[in-house]
């Protein structure tokens, strides 16, 4: 091989890589014709490649897929939830807040099954019914829980009835009447009231609630 030009080895590599220009290929083939050493080298390399390629294609064991799946981490579901939390921290906080709030309010709603009403002078109570007697005037708002309201006199203020009924009668109410008897409405009412209470800190309101 001593007499061979330096670049023949590169030509041979390119040729074996299948990455050779037609003119170089011509050159290489001509050289092979005349050079037994290079020819031998080329044949051995080709044989080597053929041997390597003939290494029979082996297959993975038949239980390979099953075993692989068995090795995968299982907590995919939890990871998904965690990723969601990480991506939407505000939404996650809001959702958590809503869940806790509604839980607290709902339990409140269920606890408040006993009869109660806003304490005002002159109110008459008959069983589960609060009565504004005829000829009396009550100033201020009135809330009745788990009971009914009958107005025979005059009420200057708003009325709220939770889990009860306003019984139409001859009386006069100057404010609004609101009846609440579903959990959802109770929830809404409490939230609304929360804001009102917050506002009430700034202007003093005299009405009290007895439970």
């Amino acid at each position: 091989m001593n007499a061979c030009p330096e670049n023949v080895i590169y030509l041979m590599d390119d040729y074996l890589d299948g990455d050779i220009s037609p003119s170089d290929e011509q050159l290489f083939k001509e050289h092979l014709e005349n050079c037994p050493d290079c020819r031998k080298q080329y044949q051995e390399l080709s044989k080597t490649i053929a041997f390597v390629q003939s290494a029979s294609h082996i297959q993975a064991p038949s239980d390979f897929v099953q075993k692989t799946m068995g090795r995968l981490p299982k907590e995919r579901q939890r990871a998904g939830v965690q990723r969601w939390f990480r991506r939407h921290p505000m939404l996650a906080a809001a959702a958590l807040f809503c869940i806790l709030m509604s839980a607290a309010l709902m339990s409140n709603f269920n606890d408040d099954q006993h009869f109660s009403f806003t304490k005002q002078p002159n109110l008459v109570v008959e069983g589960q019914t609060v009565i504004v007697p005829e000829g009396q005037t009550i100033v201020g708002d009135l809330t009745v829980r788990n009971g009914d309201l009958r107005v025979e006199g005059e009420l200057q203020g708003d009325v709220t009835i939770v889990n009860g009924q306003y019984m139409a009668s001859s009386g006069v109410i100057t404010g609004e009447i609101e009846e609440i008897d579903k959990a959802f409405e109770w929830l809404w009412y409490t939230i609304k009231n929360g804001f009102k209470d917050a506002a009430a800190i700034f202007d003093t309101d005299g009405s009290q609630t007895t439970e």
Binding site: I58, Q59, A60, P61, F64, V65, T68, M69
Partner: peptide
């Protein structure tokens, strides 16, 4: 599992 199915032999090889 379908992806594993597709590539198992080549990867194992």
């Amino acid at each position: 599992a379908e992806i594993v199915e597709l590539y198992q032999h080549q990867l194992y090889q």
